[in-house]
Simulated assay, not measured.
Amino acid sequence: MSHSRHLTLTDLAATMALGDRLAAVLVAGDVVCLAGDLGAGKTTLARQVIARMCGIDDAPSPTYTIVQVYETDAAVALWHVDLYRIEAPGELEQLGLDDAFDDAITLIEWPERLEDDLPADRLEISIAITGAGVDTVREARITGFGSWESRVDEF
């Protein structure tokens, strides 16, 4: 079962505002899956959450390191995970994501690489680029699974 809603992100400010609203509701154990094509805005959204929760305005993308861990203002670890370079599910075992899923806030780019290992309780934000040129906007589909079903409308 799941609960979804859609948002139109007309510009960078709208994406940042979504990140601010998301940061305001995240707690230990929350998993947020960020899906979309290259350039859709996944990292921009994650960086805004990190800025709000950790006070780091220029967080690096974990494309090459795969995982970046931050301490939030609430003393909860925030994991920013980018699975783009993961080629086989066996590579995931070394990352320790199960521990993060239990105790940290986890933001995952390219979550489809986890295949069947996605936690049942998760928020999925899928971002698609629509339009072209000055008419380019992003459409975000926000879907809550498990405990997130009742929380989707919080932000």
Rank of each mutant, 00 (worst) to 15 (best):
A132T: 15
S126H: 04
P111V: 09
R138K: 09
D57G: 04
D30H: 05
L9Y: 10
E71I: 14
D121S: 11
S2H: 11
D116T: 07
E71W: 07
V32Q: 11
L123V: 05
E109Q: 08
D102K: 00
D153M: 00
A104P: 01
A35Y: 13
V25H: 03
A75C: 07
G29K: 00
E93P: 03
R138N: 02
L114D: 02
D135Y: 02
E124L: 13
A88C: 11
G55N: 02
A128W: 04
D116Q: 12
S126L: 03
A120W: 01
E87W: 06
F101M: 08
L26I: 08
L97S: 01
Y70H: 14
V27P: 00
F101W: 11
A35K: 13
D117T: 11
C33L: 09
T143F: 10
T10R: 15
V76P: 05
V25M: 04
R141F: 00
M1C: 09
E109N: 11
I125F: 00
A13R: 01
P111H: 09
A104R: 00
R141V: 15
D121L: 04
L107N: 10
V27W: 09
F155S: 13
S147C: 10
E71N: 14
A75G: 06
I86G: 12
C33A: 06
A120F: 07
I66T: 12
K42Y: 01
D116I: 02
H6V: 15
D20I: 08
D82M: 02
V152L: 02
R47D: 03
A88L: 06
A75N: 14
A23T: 08
V25G: 07
E93M: 07
Y70Q: 14
A28P: 01
R122N: 04
Y64M: 04
A24K: 03
E87S: 10
A100R: 00
E109K: 14
T65H: 15
R85S: 03
Q94W: 10
A28F: 01
A23Q: 05
A14D: 12
S61D: 01
D37T: 11
V134A: 14
R52F: 08
R52A: 12
C54V: 06
D73G: 15
A14M: 14
M1R: 12
W148H: 05
A13E: 05
T143G: 04
V25Q: 01
P119R: 13
L95K: 15
A17M: 03
E139M: 11
L78M: 10
R122F: 01
D117K: 09
I129C: 10
I86T: 12
L95V: 10
M1D: 12
E154L: 15
